[in-house]
Design a protein around this nucleic acid. Structure first.
Lengths: 318, 318
DNA sequence: AAAAGCTTTAACTCGAAATAAAATACAATC
DNA sequence: GATTGTATTTTATTTCGAGTTAAAGCTTTT
């Protein structure tokens, strides 16, 4: 699984450094750094919350792929304007965050397919995925955080039936139908015009050409992100946290890509309508509209799920 | 910290076995086993979900404190009727669950007092609590699950400001004001008469003599449990899970015992009124009443918190 | 003075070995 | 045949040492 080559120093950096490099690219693109812009290490320390050591390594990595250039004793500078960084970034090896994400989805997937039993031991997972115990524990703890699995008394871990039954899916939407409109009606609700504008741009881009081109994971991220921005306006961290939890759960089932393009178009249009309502200050209407928006999605998902189950017999092991 | 004596075999069992013993006592009391009742190992395996090994050790432990008696090749039998087990159970050493709970509260407490910085390393905690890394990681992961702390990029853990600011407290109540009444109005809402009757008994007992006698932790448990039973009637696991999360968070701040007896009396009375409304099928009224009930509590907490802060200067390090 | 360059320190990860203990399999007894 | 008593196997925890690397400190350059 792991590359044995160490000819180039690109292969010599770890996933953490690579993820820092990816984040530096993100910052450069977001803030639209011009060619020749001086990337000081200190500013990146402040922006990324890590020490200079990995930042320096990340910059060296970026130099190797031609994204930045260094001058002795003067530091690193943008080699090209930020817009042109997109395809260079593709040369970066997989950052740590992505690798962990893959492991996470693989485990969830194996469980959903029934390849892993409801009860599992740590050694079993260590053997199956050829991982050290530490990584397995991190995976399991993350899943535990999201309510997918829990430690058994004695030993072993137990997967919970969450989300795999159609009823759970229904409950997830019902839950969101409660918290999301309520978020809009909170006394502290205060929309951020800039964030709203960004959402509008995203949704329009998605409607324009994204739906056909973007990956299911990307589409899901945008859609879920919109709802999170919205509930974030409530100023209540628990509402936001609760929705994040739901989205993390749903992602596991929905990243596989059985997305209906038509529903996505309607979804985008409704999101845009919602933005209009909020910008106009029509909170009550927005809340009601959001509720309906979710109710429709719930209904579609539930009936589709039922049909799917009837036909394929998937999930029968639950 | 740990007892070095191993004269008696009671001191030789681990916390896991002790917790099994405690659970066996619970079962015996709940099902009202008479003296002489045969406790078969197989039935306890089914009831507790662990293997015979720890159950057997737990029974030996219970024999030592005189709760059960053994006959060669015939197994274990109740030494006394279940009602008389209460004070014998006090002889049991602290079970694992309690020990972990203590560690958890100690860590939370140390953090709230400012004895631990916002950022902390694993080795620091290992040294401070004289624990192996594994236990520290388990503690931290549990706190991470509840949103109290998170892993920093690079290394170290970061405590989040959750719940320590008055605003967070306010948000917690606002969150509950959203989900709890909504739970009552859910289409799947279906109260369980038996559970409701049990709640009524508990609340009346508390009103009767509990408030003066019971420990703050006990009082909190009863109060929080009532709300959890209620939201459980909704049939939506996410509502229940969200409330449980809130209660776990609140407990950290409220177990210390600065409970106002007068508010507790009113709280109980309102809980009883709520039970009446639900038994009468008046869901709409119950939901509205519950919302007010929480709003009052929120208001009391928030103003008290503010006053407290003004006077003591506690929490200033945040 | 601020930033880059370089060195040192300290925290974490991993693997191996020893230990503990839960799960399981098997034998003996009622 | 079901249940207890005992032995074996499997899984998890702990400790220790080696290796890695992020963080922090110090020096040099601009």
């Amino acid at each position: 699984m792991k590359s044995a080559s160490s000819d180039t120093s690109v292969a010599n950096v770890n996933g953490f450094v690579t993820s820092i490099a990816a984040r530096i690219v993100d910052i450069a693109r977001k803030d639209e750094y011009p060619a020749g812009f001086h990337l000081t290490e200190q500013s990146l320390v402040a922006a990324l919350g890590v020490s200079r050591t990995p930042i320096r390594k990340a910059l060296l990595l970026l130099e190797e792929i031609g994204a930045v250039e260094s001058q002795p004793n003067r530091g690193f500078f943008m080699a090209k304007p930020a817009e042109k960084l997109q395809k260079l970034a593709a040369k970066l090896p997989a950052p740590q965050a992505e690798a962990e994400e893959d492991d996470y989805l693989r485990l969830a997937d194996d469980r959903l397919r029934g390849a892993i039993a409801e009860e599992v031991s740590e050694v079993e997972l260590m053997a199956r995925y050829e991982m050290p115990r530490g990584q397995v524990l991190r995976l399991l703890n993350r899943m535990a955080k999201e309510g997918l699995v829990e430690r058994k008394p004695g030993r072993g871990w137990q997967f919970l039936p969450i989300l795999v039954t159609p009823a759970a899916h229904d409950q997830s939407y019902r839950f969101r139908m409660i918290i999301e409109p309520a978020g809009i009606m909170e006394p502290g609700f205060k929309p951020d015009p800039a964030a709203l504008a960004r959402c509008r741009r995203e949704q329009m881009e998605m409607l324009d050409r994204g739906i056909a081109k973007w990956s299911p994971a990307e589409l899901f991220r945008i859609g879920a992100g919109f709802h999170e921005v919205l509930i974030g306006f409530s100023g209540n961290r628990f509402l936001l946290e609760a929705l994040r939890n739901q989205n993390r759960l749903r992602r596991i089932l929905e990243y596989r890509g059985n997305l209906d393009r038509n529903s996505l178009i309607r979804q985008c249009e409704e999101h845009l309508k919602l933005i209009d309502l909020i910008e106009a200050g029509a909170r009550k209407e927005a809340a009601a509209f959001l509720r309906d928006h979710l109710d429709v999605a719930r209904d579609v998902k539930t009936t589709k799920e039922r049909a799917h189950k009837r036909v394929s017999g998937l999930y029968n092991h639950f």
